[in-house]
């Protein structure tokens, strides 16, 4: 139940985006996609930090926005310089996302197993 609010937030965001229907210039679609990837990495990093007990909301928000903007800017700069920084950003953020997901999975499973073992011990006692 602790994750209900963030999940509802995600659903509300998708719904809001559908309602608002922001008209991004088509030439910016490529940069928005890499910004989404960076934002996803930031969010998963925030979740990971929660499990690691070093979560900071301001850092998450600032990182979320700055990473998204920076990723989009780097992709744009790569296009201007004719260097495919877009692919580099996709690769880096892809790796980070999978690392974060792996860590989160590890923490979730550990927490689950820890609780399960604790319950089993209590029953024995």
């Amino acid at each position: 139940m602790v994750w209900l609010i963030p999940v509802l937030g995600l659903l509300a965001g998708i719904l809001l985006g559908s309602i608002i229907s922001l008209q991004i210039p088509l030439t910016m679609a490529k940069y928005l996609s890499i910004a989404v990837l960076a934002a996803l990495d930031s969010v998963l990093g925030g979740v990971r930090c929660i499990y690691e007990n070093n979560f900071n909301g301001l850092i998450l928000l600032s990182g979320f926005i700055s990473n998204a903007l920076l990723a989009a800017f780097l992709a744009f700069l790569g296009d201007q310089l004719n260097v495919d920084l877009y692919m580099a950003a996709v690769f880096v953020f892809g790796v980070r996302i999978f690392q974060n997901l792996s860590a989160i999975r590890h923490y979730v499973l550990s927490s689950f197993l820890k609780k399960h073992n604790l319950h089993a011990t209590q029953r024995k006692d």
């Binding site: 995600l10 965001g13 998708i14 985006g17 679609a29 928005l32």
Partner: peptide, 20 residues
């Protein structure tokens, strides 16, 4: 709350990106 805010923003971005 912080996470919900980021998720909302992420949802908006994803939705916008899909439409775009």
């Amino acid at each position: 709350i912080y996470l919900a805010i980021t998720f909302i923003l992420l949802g908006i971005m994803i939705s916008t990106q899909i439409q775009t």
